[in-house]
């Protein structure tokens, strides 16, 4: 009886495992496969994985437009990461060191609200704000809008890192004559290094894939990032799947690189926002 039960259990476990491998493997598999398939074969044998690989689609998207879009994406990704880390680090430290519980919990609540407002909604009044600041249609405008979206999240995640700083360490540094600024730079930042790195990587990835603000605020010119370039392909009548998948593959490449380099950081970063 017990043996039958445990066999059934492990069977169920293998079914779940198999299903998950299938669901999470399939999109990556066909992203690559379709990029190298002949345009005439794609609609006829979309699922085939044995075929003669061609470079037609890859060549079709490897042009100046892709390079320009990649530079725009990089500009937005690095710009946003710098603004968010630069503003969130001192803010999170300040919030962790403040004693007034009421002010801190009010600020944290406001940050949670701001973090949750749908981007598709804040984009409407942001248009007006960017017009006022003469930032509409510029990449800097995208960086600021995106930073405002991600900053609350960054502060919420970073604060516990600083809050876990032992007060004795700070007191000892103070007795040694360290200024408050030196305590921040020499003690707090090195100790919260992991958290800061996680935030930087997460923000960079989100900046690289930024889409909504770019489609809404940038003219259809050489300022568009990769994501917007892709959407131009999707929305056109009769999608050309080969070039689209090739474009998606190129957009994913830097993410793959960052992912491989920071995988462990990401796996923990993923769960950070949830419980704390």
């Amino acid at each position: 009886m017990a043996i039958v039960g445990s066999e059934r259990r492990s069977l169920g476990r293998y079914l779940v495992l198999g299903l998950l491998f299938f669901l999470y493997g399939i999109p990556i598999l066909y992203l690559v496969v379709t990029s190298f398939k002949a345009a005439s074969e794609i609609p006829v044998t979309p699922a085939a994985v044995v075929f003669t690989p061609l470079l037609d689609s890859v060549r079709a998207v490897l042009n100046d437009a892709l390079w320009t879009a990649a530079k725009n994406s990089a500009y937005i990704a690095f710009g946003t990461a710098i603004v968010v880390v630069g503003l969130a680090t001192p803010a999170a430290y300040g919030l962790a060191r403040m004693r007034s519980g009421r002010i801190v919990s009010f600020l944290l609540f406001s940050l949670i609200v701001l973090q949750m407002v749908p981007q598709a909604n804040s984009v409407i009044p942001l248009l007006r704000v960017l017009v006022r600041l003469d930032l509409l249609g510029s990449r800097l405008g995208i960086i600021f809008a995106l930073s405002a979206l991600l900053l609350p999240f960054a502060v919420i995640i970073l604060r516990p890192f600083f809050a876990s700083l032992p007060p004795e360490t700070i007191e000892a540094a103070r007795l040694d004559g360290a200024s408050e600024l030196a305590i921040f730079y020499r003690i707090a930042i090195p100790l919260a290094r992991n958290g800061i790195a996680t935030i930087a990587v997460l923000v960079w990835i989100l900046g690289w894939g930024e889409f909504l603000y770019s489609v809404s605020f940038l003219p259809k010119t050489d300022l568009l990032p990769m994501s917007a370039l892709m959407s131009l392909q999707v929305s056109s009548e009769g999608v050309r799947w080969g070039p689209l998948m090739a474009l998606a593959m190129f957009t994913a490449l830097p993410i793959v690189a960052v992912f491989i380099a920071t995988q462990r950081l990401l796996a923990t970063g993923l769960t950070l926002g949830a419980v704390k």
Binding site: I205, G209, S227, M230, A248, T251, I255, V256, L266
Partner: peptide, 10 residues
């Protein structure tokens, strides 16, 4: 985790 990190546009 990779699927989660992938931009939704992709």
């Amino acid at each position: 985790v990779f699927a989660w990190a992938l931009p939704p546009i992709i």
